[in-house]
Every structure is written in structure tokens, then in C-alpha cells.
Write a protein that binds this DNA or RNA. Structure first.
Lengths: 231, 231
DNA sequence: TGACAAATTAACCTCAGGGTACATAAAGGT
DNA sequence: ACCTTTATGTACCCTGAGGTTAATTTGTCA
């Protein structure tokens, strides 16, 4: 397991080299894990330091204090979710297919970004105090709304979407089940069992939620997923 | 405002009387506020003590330690949400009306129970560790599922609901937007502005979400809320 | 090659905050 | 009236964790 660790430890032990970028990233990666796991007050700077390959002093050197570190972590996860959204190409698709794709992609993106979800939960506990300080995050979120707006505009123009459909409200709706599905998994399972969290049932939930969104937005869309035998 | 506070202070000052029930409730009420506001590790026992009309010593006397107090707070808010759900009489209504009523009531109940929402969020951060220890909470949650199950069964029997409709999945869906609407208000507003959180827009969101649920569950239901002019 | 800045280490400081020890007053039983 | 149990007030302890000081090494540019 430590076959190649030799070189690394040599590097760090007898004669360490400077590598500020790697150190910063190392700290951020560990801090993301820890803040996501335990929250702002719950996370422990000493533990974060131990899990990095550097020392506590470096955390303060690069990030000032605990809150500074937390802010950078927050910006990091927001940026990384934006990336996964931006990779989604939806402009080329016909409006209904585009909307379907957007909903499914959002559902999946949330399911695959538990750190993001947990940090957003934590941030909500803190009334978004740190998010509001960030100058980069508001920009990040614009792109998803623009995508939805584009789809809605084209859908209405084609006579396929209802006229009153509002991109922001639609985003609220799509986010709600995508987010809740991950954020409340623990309490939901504790209350009602884990039956909704098998791979199979998750696929069903996604399909039904997607179908449901389409049936409110798309004129004449008839939902069919519930017609399948239960479960 | 303190016209009658005189008697109370007399009671506590010169010759205090024993009143264990009131003391316990006082502590619980304050602790609910504080844990909901700051989380488990974020809440401060000294501050809780200061905000009660009793002392820190009594917290440990009645609740053992911080986690013990937190558990009781958690059970308290769950119980109080159950109450608001149980007061809802839905058995007498025709299935479609009953479902509509259930969705609207759930939306409102969540909107009016911010403490509950925040504590559930906090509990999810802790992977529902404390909720799982509770023996009373699983019982509490059964009643809402039973209500939904009753409505679904009647709806299917009347040929109005799709056959595959599943009460637990339906509950997941209804909870998702009801919960998210409150839980993520802070970050959502920070990202996209607070336009969705006016009284008027909240009513619209509730109506549209309700309409959406009905359109997936009820055969032949045509959603109309989006047809209104945007906003 | 030596001064200067940037990066890093190790040891230390401080105090907030969870938890306890001990004394004591009120109620309740007999 | 006494003893016991329950309830309460005061003062204190002490560790964990956020943050700092000061010295050391590495790189860089005259």
C-alpha cells in the first residue's frame, strides 16, 4: 500500500518542497468532506489538519480562519455543480425533450452531489449568511435559469407549453424533489423505511417526477408512469 | 406587558415554589428555539440556560446532557406536527377533494412550522442518528401515510385515481416541495431573489404544486393554473 | 552569494462551553 | 417534628478546539 509512498514521504520529511497550489487543494478537499459531514460548528480544525498532508498552521496561512475556509468550500461545491449543469447541452433539443432532459439531469446531478446537498443544507441553517457574502455564486446560478428560460420560450412559441409557465417557479419545482430526495433521505428512511432508496425505486421516482413536471407544463401531456403496476 | 409578571416574579424571587413541569417546559421551549436556530453543536447550553427562567443546573437535572435535551426537543416538534396533521379531517371528503385538501394542508403545515423544518434539516445532517433512537417518532409518521392510503384506495375504487399510485411515493412527492419551500428559502433567495416568497407568490406556488399532484394522480385531470398570465 | 519573500514546522496560548460538586430549601410522608 | 426525596442555586472544573508566535527552510532575484 505504501510502495510509492516512499518518494512522497522523502519529499516531505528530510527536504520538503514548496507546493502551495497542491497544499491549498488538499486542504479544500479535506475541509469539504469535513464541513459536509459535520457542519460549520461541528467540523473540527484539528481533525481537518490531521487528515491533510499538511499542518493546521497552513490552514490559517491560506484561509485566515474557520469561516474563511468554510466560504471557499462553499464556493467550490457551487462551482462544481454549475459545471455539471453547463455540460448539459439542451439548446439543440426540441422543447419537450429538452425539458425532460433537464429534469432528469437535475435529479441525477443532485443524487450524485451529496457534498453539495449537505453544504447547502448547512448554509440554510445559517440563513445563507456566507452564501450572500460570496460574489461568485449569484453568477453561477444564472445559467440554469437561462437554460430553463430558453426551453420555456421555445416551448411556448411552438404552442406546446402553457403560456403562464414561469422558469423560476419551474426551477423551484424541479429542485424541490431533486434536492429533498437527497437531503431528507436519512429522516425519511428512519420514518418510513428505505424502500424508496433502492436503485430501482429511485429510477421510478425520477420517471414519475419527470412525467409530473411534463404534465403540468406541456399542453395535452398525459402522464402514464403511475399506470404501471405499483412499486 | 408585565402587568401580571409581578405575581410570577414574587413566586420565584423571595420564596420560590417547586414547579417541575413548568421548568421542564420552559427549558424545552427555549431549547427548541436554540437548537432550531444553531444546530446541535452550534447551540450553547449556557445561552439556553440564560434564556430560561431557571438555571443550567436544571437542564442537566432533567435532561442529562446536551444530546438528551436535543432528543426531547426533536420528539416534541415531531409530535406537534402530527397533531396538526391529525386535526385534518379527510375521511369525509370525496377522493379528489380529499387529496387536494391533503396537499394544501401539508404545504401550509410546513410553512407554519419552521422549527420543525430546521430541526429535521439538522437531524439529516446528523444522519438521523437521534431520530432512530426515538421509539415514539415512527408511530407518529404512520398516521399521515394511513390517511394518504385511505384516500388512494377510495380514489382507485371510484375509478378516479390511476391504479399504480403509491401512497408512500405520493407522500415523498408532496413532502418534497412542501419541505424544500421552507428549508431552502435562504439559499434560494440568495441565489435568485426573494420573489417566490411573497404571500401572493406562495399562494400561486401552492396552487400550482397541488394542481400538478392532481394531474399525475387523477385520471383526466387537466392542470389549468399555468394558463393564467405569468407571475 | 546573500538578502528578501514565500512556505512550512512545532510548540504554545486562551477561553468558551459542556459538565460536575456541594450545599440547601421545599414537599411529603409518618 | 423528623426524615427522605425532590428540586433548585452557586460556584467551580477542565478539556477540547480555535487561533497564534516564533523560528526554520526553500525559492528567487540582484
Amino acid at each position: 500500500m505504501d510502495g510509492s509512498g516512499d518518494r512522497d514521504s522523502k519529499k516531505r520529511k528530510s527536504s520538503w518542497r514548496k507546493d502551495p497550489v497542491a497544499v491549498r487543494e488538499d486542504i479544500l478537499a479535506v475541509a469539504t468532506q469535513e464541513f459536509a459531514a459535520h457542519g460549520l460548528s461541528g467540523a473540527n480544525i484539528n481533525e481537518i489538519a490531521e487528515k491533510t498532508s499538511t499542518s493546521k498552521r497552513m490552514i490559517y496561512y491560506y484561509f485566515g480562519d474557520k469561516e474563511g475556509l468554510y466560504c471557499k468550500v462553499l464556493e467550490g461545491v457551487y462551482a462544481s455543480l454549475r459545471n455539471s449543469e453547463d455540460r448539459l447541452d439542451v439548446e439543440g433539443l426540441e422543447p419537450v425533450a429538452a425539458l425532460r432532459r433537464l429534469v432528469e439531469a437535475t435529479f441525477d446531478a443532485h443524487a450524485n452531489a451529496p457534498h453539495f446537498i449537505r453544504l447547502v443544507m448547512i448554509e440554510n441553517i445559517h440563513n445563507a449568511d456566507y452564501l450572500r457574502k460570496s460574489r461568485i455564486v449569484p453568477k453561477l446560478n444564472r445559467s440554469i435559469i437561462e437554460k430553463l428560460d430558453d426551453v420555456c420560450t421555445r416551448g411556448k412559441a411552438a404552442g406546446k407549453f402553457r403560456q403562464g409557465v414561469d422558469p423560476l417557479q419551474l426551477h423551484w419545482l424541479i429542485s424541490s424533489f431533486s434536492f429533498y430526495n437527497v437531503s431528507n433521505r436519512a429522516t425519511f428512511s428512519a420514518s418510513f423505511g428505505a424502500s424508496l432508496y433502492t436503485k430501482k425505486t429511485q429510477a421510478i421516482l425520477k420517471a414519475r417526477a419527470t412525467d409530473m413536471v411534463l404534465s403540468t407544463v406541456v399542453i395535452g401531456h398525459v402522464p402514464t408512469t403511475w399506470d404501471a403496476p405499483a412499486g
